[in-house]
Amino acid sequence: PDFIGRAGLLARKEAGLKWQFVTLEVDGVTDADARGSEPIQRDGELIGRATSGGYGWRTGKSLALAMVAPQHATPGTEMEIVILGQPHRAVVIADSPFDPENNALRS
């Protein structure tokens, strides 16, 4: 059925996504996790920005959520996130990590 904005929505869908939401596992963080707006780079090119981040106590990993260009959103893709002026290796992971059985808390 027709609705206000339908033509614009269909045109946007046909043009493709400009950004894709991903979860990143961040390596080498020692004192600060991503908080939001940190630049995401690959081969020196800005490809996105973090939206938030923090330490995953149940997973034991520094995690960041980010919007990146779709061609960089495939799980396993490596990139850099700059936290407090320091670049850190980050990898796109398939799903948001979690520990449904709470095994990490019991070990």
Rank of each mutant, 00 (worst) to 15 (best):
P75W: 12
V22M: 00
V26W: 00
A32T: 12
R58L: 11
G76M: 05
E38L: 08
G36M: 09
I47Q: 05
E38N: 07
G54K: 02
P70N: 07
A34E: 01
E45S: 11
V26M: 02
D43L: 14
I40A: 06
M67A: 11
P70D: 06
D31C: 01
G48C: 07
A50P: 03
L65S: 09
L63V: 10
E25H: 09
P39T: 08
K61M: 12
K61S: 10
Q71A: 09
P39W: 12
G76V: 06
V26F: 01
I40H: 05
E45A: 13
T74A: 15
D31H: 04
D43Y: 11
M67N: 15
I40W: 04
A66H: 04
D27M: 11
F21M: 00
G60M: 06
E38I: 07
L65N: 13
R49S: 08
G76D: 10
A32G: 00
L24R: 02
P39E: 13
L24A: 01
R58W: 11
E38D: 06
L65D: 14
L63C: 03
S37F: 13
R35Q: 12
A34P: 02
A73T: 04
D31I: 00
L46S: 05
Y55H: 12
T23G: 01
A34Y: 07
K61T: 09
S37K: 14
A34R: 08
T51A: 11
T51D: 06
V68A: 00
A64H: 00
E25M: 07
I47L: 07
K61V: 08
P39Q: 12
G60Y: 04
G28F: 06
E25P: 03
D27Y: 11
T30G: 10
T77I: 09
T77D: 09
R49I: 02
A50T: 15
I40Q: 06
D27E: 15
T77S: 15
A73S: 15
P39R: 14
F21N: 00
L24G: 01
G60V: 07
A32V: 10
A34I: 05
R42L: 10
A34G: 00
T59C: 10
G54F: 04
T74Y: 09
T51M: 13
G28W: 05
G36N: 07
D43M: 11
Q71T: 01
K61Y: 06
D43Q: 14
G76Q: 07
T59Q: 14
E25D: 04
L24I: 02
T74Q: 15
L24T: 01
T30Q: 10
R49V: 03
V29I: 11
L46F: 09
A50K: 02
T77G: 07
T51S: 13
D33N: 13
D33W: 09
Q71S: 06
G48H: 06
P70V: 01
P39F: 13
M67F: 15
H72E: 06
A69E: 13
L46C: 01
D33C: 13
S52M: 07
L65R: 13
R35P: 00
V68I: 10
Q71D: 05
W57T: 15
Q71E: 13
L63G: 03
L24V: 00
M67G: 11
R35K: 13
G28V: 00
S62D: 15
T30A: 10
K61E: 12
A32C: 10
Y55T: 05
I40M: 13
V68H: 04
P39D: 10
V29C: 04
S37P: 01
